[in-house]
Design a protein around this nucleic acid. Structure first.
Length: 571
DNA sequence: GCCGTTTTCGGCCCGACTGTTTTCAGTCG
């Protein structure tokens, strides 16, 4: 059975983990982990690359050996080395290693001295107090482990928008303290990843203890995990962990780079520095003991011979090579957006009338919106039939007649039915400015059927944009099975476009898919799918994901003035 | 296991905090 990239990546990662637990050469284990990350972050599927006879050793961190192993995994669905490791190291060692405070060394102690192989066995040993007697472990470790074992596994990652709410309040609280300079959020939050594991905050302050004390005193803190002169870690009521790092102002730039990550990006930068005989850490870029850069990120990148790399690109996905040749993309920004192409009103399941949505969009500096209510098949949303849609277009004509400087485009978010036909007849679709097509049912189809279904919808020449193409809800629902490469290919061939749905729980297309679409020449709309005026503000999350996908203003439909946009919407 | 404008062998990022060590290993980011 041929496997997808994520599945291959998972097997490689598991292999790396087990190799690490087993001991032996740690760099070998690291090589598997790196390969896992590279495969997981690939825009194209390994299957496609193999089919096209591409040389996998051209991928970073993949040599002859791993290329052969990846090919074997991809084609057979099996990985002998992993099977062998699982046989040699039975039990849920991976789950045990995931516990806080348990790394490969302590895991080995538990395994060798106590014979612990499963979480249940560990729980029994911890309860019986047998851990503290093992030389190298101890009472504190046992207590911490017992707590971790009791705690129900909470959400390990939080949606970006959720963390943003927490961060805004917490940053304001910390900035209010005396003797504090900069207080900024870094980490995956600053890279604008769709989900955030923990919130990293960087501060410059005269006294690191003091701002740490203030963090601990924050009302939502339930637990202090670590507290020192440079670093304090706490857990909030929501379960979100916050890491506060304090550095001198002269180190702010280097610390921002270090604390923003990603880890892989930092490793690559440090290797670059190392090759020049320098050292890069959170305090600066050093030639021997002499700091040659550090107060700003720009200066550090410049010294390393790189253009400034926007935080959204720092994933070690080719940005360092591009920065070296000064060929980074000029990323789209919120200021480039001139309108919103997916908006609902109270004609279907939106909260407010068309005029209110239009006014809210105008207040945000837009020149147009596309009103795209649901179609009849989605009865629960009070979806529009031909007659109501027809009346809605008349209403929009009346509203448009009132304003010179703002246009409401007549649209629909039409359901793609199970067989790929559309929920409304061509006769009415032809009268609209744009048709957004979307799947809202039968998420259970096979990948082939789902892909055929959406391609058939794109065959209809009235369809301009496919909305939320994979149907995922972050943390709630996986994407339906669909062959994204075939969809992108079809869209490119049809002159059809995809949406980056900006709702923080959708962000669909994802960053990787957006990048793949761009590579194929497919243009994208960044749309909010707003069901109320406030919903229009989700635009920033869509723009952030687009930036993570290396997207430039020219790749986006709704960066254009209305006449240019209209041309692109016609097929 | 990967990789090379110092190397095809000998390296592989770097520092803070904790707990158990009695001067530092393990974990984490």
């Amino acid at each position: 059975m041929p496997l997808h990239n994520v599945e291959i990546a998972k097997m490689l990662d598991q292999t790396g983990e087990l190799l690490e637990i087993q001991g032996g050469n740690p760099f070998r284990a690291r090589a598997y982990r790196r390969a896992a990350r590279v495969v997981g972050g690939l825009g194209k599927s390994i299957q496609t690359l193999i089919a096209a006879d591409k040389d996998l050793t051209e991928l970073p961190g993949i040599g002859d050996d791993l290329a052969a192993k990846i090919t074997a995994i991809a084609t057979t669905g099996r990985f002998d080395l992993l099977e062998q490791l699982k046989h040699e190291l039975p039990g849920d060692l991976g789950d045990i290693a995931a516990l806080p405070g348990v790394g490969p060394k302590r895991l080995k102690l538990l395994y060798d001295r106590l014979g612990v192989r499963t979480l249940d066995e560990l729980r029994r040993c911890a309860a019986a107090g047998r851990l503290r007697d093992v030389k190298g472990l101890g009472g504190k470790f046992e207590i911490r482990l017992r707590e971790a074992l009791q705690k129900p596994a909470g959400p390990s990652r939080f949606r970006l928008s959720v963390v943003e709410d927490e961060a805004d309040a917490l940053l304001a609280f910390l900035r209010d303290a005396g003797g504090v300079g900069a207080v900024v959020a870094a980490g995956s939050f600053r890279r604008r990843r769709e989900t955030v594991g923990d919130l990293d905050i960087l501060a410059t302050a005269r006294d690191g203890w003091k701002i740490g004390d203030r963090l601990i005193a924050y009302e939502n803190v339930v637990k202090t995990l670590a507290h020192g002169p440079m670093r304090t870690s706490v857990e909030l009521r929501s379960g979100l962990q916050v890491d506060l790092r304090v550095v001198p102002a002269a180190s702010l730039g280097a610390a921002l780079i270090y604390f923003t990550g990603s880890k892989a990006h930092n490793l690559a930068l440090r290797r670059l520095a190392q090759r020049r005989g320098w050292k890069l850490n959170e305090y600066g870029l050093f030639d021997q003991d002499h700091r040659i850069a550090g107060s700003t990120e720009q200066a550090v990148y410049r010294k390393l011979g790189l253009s400034y790399i926007p935080s959204e690109l720092r994933e070690d996905r080719g940005e360092i090579a591009a920065a070296r040749t000064h060929s980074l993309p000029a990323l789209v920004s919120l200021a480039d957006i001139r309108g919103d192409l997916h908006v609902h009103s109270n004609w279907s399941d939106g909260a407010v009338p068309i005029a209110v949505m239009a006014e809210a969009a105008r207040a945000r500096g837009y020149g147009y919106i596309a009103l795209t209510d649901h179609s009849q098949h989605l009865a629960i949303t009070h979806g529009l039939d031909v007659e109501r849609l027809s009346r809605q277009t008349d209403e929009i004509d009346r509203l448009n007649a009132r304003r010179e400087d703002f246009t409401i485009l007549k649209g629909i978010e039409v359901d793609i039915l199970t067989d790929g036909t559309l929920d409304l007849p061509d006769s009415i679709l032809a009268r609209l400015d744009l048709v957004v097509a979307a799947v809202h049912s039968r998420f259970d189809l096979s990948a082939k059927a789902q892909t055929d279904r959406i391609i058939r919808a794109m065959d209809n020449p009235h369809v301009s944009i496919v909305a939320h193409p994979t149907g995922r809800l972050i943390g709630d629902r996986d994407a339906y099975a669909v062959d994204m490469e075939r969809l992108i290919e079809a869209a490119a061939g049809h002159g059809c476009h995809f949406e980056i749905n900006a709702e923080p729980d959708r962000l669909d297309l994802s960053d990787l898919h957006a990048r793949a679409a761009k590579a194929a020449g497919v243009k994208l709309a960044i749309s909010t799918d707003a069901h109320s005026a406030d919903g229009l503000d989700f635009m920033r999350f869509g723009v952030d994901q687009a930036r993570r996908g290396w997207i430039e203003p020219g790749d986006i439909l709704n960066t254009r003035q209305l006449p240019a946009l209209r041309k692109l919407l016609k097929r």
